[in-house]
């Protein structure tokens, strides 16, 4: 039963991932990728890491849908079933992909995995949190803040109109001159 489930999830993950490059609709490609990720989340759940598995589902759904929005920006045709090629540098990409796959799969099969010594903790979510946030607290916090700063920095650099354009050099305009005001009015 467990083996069957594993095989189904593993095959789904790989096949859906490969199909991403076979379909000619951006929407289908996006959601096939999502399917692949969901299968991986299922595999993570099978290892008993409930929290991680569910968080993968959560993040991937949001991520793929946000990606779909960018897709509309660059291609507004709804449904978009027009056959189109989404490949660049096909040969190089194929070489990289195959090499990576062989390396990873080879590693997984050839490495002499250690035998489990202890027993899994009673509450894996708690154990995961403690191992991440106990000894590695500083690393995780630095990582988190760095990532967040990167996101904010990218947006600030990319935005054509920042807050100084909208609210004046001293940021003292009573309201912005946006055509469409937000709900707060700044």
């Amino acid at each position: 039963m467990t083996t069957a489930l594993f095989v189904v999830l593993a095959v789904t993950a790989v096949v859906a991932g490969a199909l991403v490059f076979r379909v000619d609709s951006m929407a289908r490609a996006t959601f096939l990728l999502l399917l692949s990720f969901l299968a991986v989340a299922g595999l993570v759940l099978m290892t008993g890491l409930q929290y991680l598995g569910v968080v993968i589902v959560l993040m991937m759904v949001i991520e793929m849908v946000v990606m779909a929005i960018f897709m509309i920006m660059y291609m507004m045709n709804p449904a978009g079933l027009m056959p189109m090629s989404m490949f660049h540098n096909t040969r190089g990409a194929a070489v990289i992909a195959v090499t990576t796959f062989v390396a990873l799969a080879g590693g997984a099969l050839l490495v002499d995995w250690p035998v489990r010594g202890g027993r899994p903790a009673a509450d894996l979510t708690m154990a995961l949190g403690e191992s991440l946030m106990g000894g590695q607290m500083l690393t995780m916090m630095t990582l988190g803040v760095t990532l967040f700063a990167t996101i904010v920095g990218t947006v600030v650099l990319a935005a054509g109109r920042g807050r100084y354009d909208r609210l004046g050099d001293e940021l003292d305009a009573p309201a912005s001159d946006d055509r469409d005001r937000g709900g707060v009015g700044r």
Partner: peptide, 26 residues
């Protein structure tokens, strides 16, 4: 054990669902 997160993850599927219906209708 992660029930609260599970609830959140499932309801986020609505994002994908509504978007897919809106997109797929052409």
């Amino acid at each position: 054990g992660a029930g609260v997160v599970w609830f959140n993850a499932m309801e986020v599927f609505a994002w994908a669902a509504v978007w897919l219906v809106g997109w797929g209708s052409n």
